[in-house]
Amino acid sequence: MTAADTANPPLIAVVGPTGSGKSTLGIDLAHQFDGEIINADSMQFYRGMDIGTAKVTVQERQGIPHHLLDTLDVNEEASVAAYQMQARATIAAIRDRGKLPILVGGSGLYVRAALDVLEFPGTDPAIRVRLEADLDRDGADSLRQRLAEIDPVSAGRDLDDRRLIRALEVHEVTGRPFSSFMPQRHYHQPALQLGLQVDRALLRERLAARVHTMVDDGLLNEVATLDNHGLRTGRTASRALGYAQFLRVLDGELTQDQAASDTIDATRRFARRQLTWFRADPRITWLDWEDPHLTSQAADHIRRTFGLS
């Protein structure tokens, strides 16, 4: 960027499904535009969860500063609201240095928390405990009926138990329906989202190969180490792809081959959900992940959108 460009650098986001090459493109763009990376993969917040999350190593970062990696212990719960504050503070600090902030990740809600006008209602642990007891005693249908009376929009979304409890909690805390907090597609600040368009059959093969590489690189040992540091007690980390499956290997419920197969299946399903999420956002500029000129194509879009030189 030129001196004029650095006065108010834009925000770039590289998004798409797991295994599509987001990290590589983000680093390439950081080299081109004197940028720094902000992580938007919720499982890469966790210290020690390296192999199973395909976290970029220090060597792979190529000297590019990476932020919001390794911010949580495995027994802590990730919070989108906390991430929003951290990400926006990090973006502001990068901009103050005259650098280009580049958000990279596939956790859709976390991406939107950083990019969009998005309000997070408060929580009340006592209310949540009471609602969880109601769920155990009366069942989900009873709570859904209760939600339908106060927030029919949310009730019609087929929420899982966790989100069902959250919707009822929000109404009690704020007096507003949970649906009123749903995000709109309005950027918090000028931004450009670049999405990686994949060949789905090839992605399926790549994800399978990546899981086998993780196993070869010692995923089971990583899970065992983290188990000793409270992995099972972490509501978020314990459900992570690969970690949940390989905990069952430690428990003697699965072989490594079975856990790898289950992880591949779960990862492919997750990639499909990511594609559905990001495809719903019309603001994303999609680029072919196999284009030999991918970085230059992405850089051209950035220059045209923001008038950078």
Rank of each mutant, 00 (worst) to 15 (best):
D138S: 14
D138T: 11
G139F: 05
G139S: 09
A140G: 15
D141Q: 15
S142E: 13
R144D: 11
R144Y: 11
Q145W: 10
L147Y: 07
L147V: 04
A148Y: 10
E149G: 13
I150L: 11
I150Y: 04
P152A: 13
V153N: 10
V153Q: 14
S154H: 05
A155W: 06
A155L: 10
D158F: 06
L159K: 10
D160K: 14
D160I: 14
R162H: 08
R162I: 11
L164M: 09
L164F: 04
L164Q: 06
I165M: 09
L168E: 07
L168V: 09
L168W: 07
E169A: 09
E169K: 08
V170I: 14
H171W: 05
H171Q: 13
H171S: 08
H171M: 07
V173F: 02
V173M: 01
T174F: 02
T174Q: 05
T174Y: 05
T174S: 13
P177H: 02
S179L: 03
S179Y: 02
S180Q: 06
P183V: 01
Q184W: 00
R185Q: 09
R185Y: 01
H186V: 12
Y187M: 14
H188W: 04
Q189S: 05
Q189E: 09
P190V: 04
P190Y: 01
A191H: 08
L194W: 00
L196V: 02
L196T: 00
L196P: 00
L196S: 00
Q197G: 01
Q197C: 02
V198D: 01
D199Y: 00
R200Q: 08
A201T: 03
A201G: 03
A201Y: 00
L202H: 01
L203D: 00
R204I: 00
R204S: 07
R204D: 05
R206A: 04
L207C: 03
L207R: 02
A208W: 00
A208T: 10
A208P: 03
A208F: 00
V211I: 15
V211D: 03
H212E: 14
M214Q: 15
M214G: 10
M214H: 14
V215K: 07
D216C: 05
D217E: 13
N221H: 10
E222R: 14
E222G: 12
E222C: 12
V223S: 03
A224S: 09
T225H: 09
L226V: 04
D227M: 12
D227H: 09
H229M: 11
H229R: 13
H229F: 12
H229A: 12
G230A: 06
G230T: 03
R232I: 10
T233A: 12
G234T: 05
G234L: 08
G234M: 07
G234W: 05
R235Y: 05
T236M: 11
A237I: 05
S238A: 15
R239D: 06
L241D: 04
L241M: 14
G242N: 12
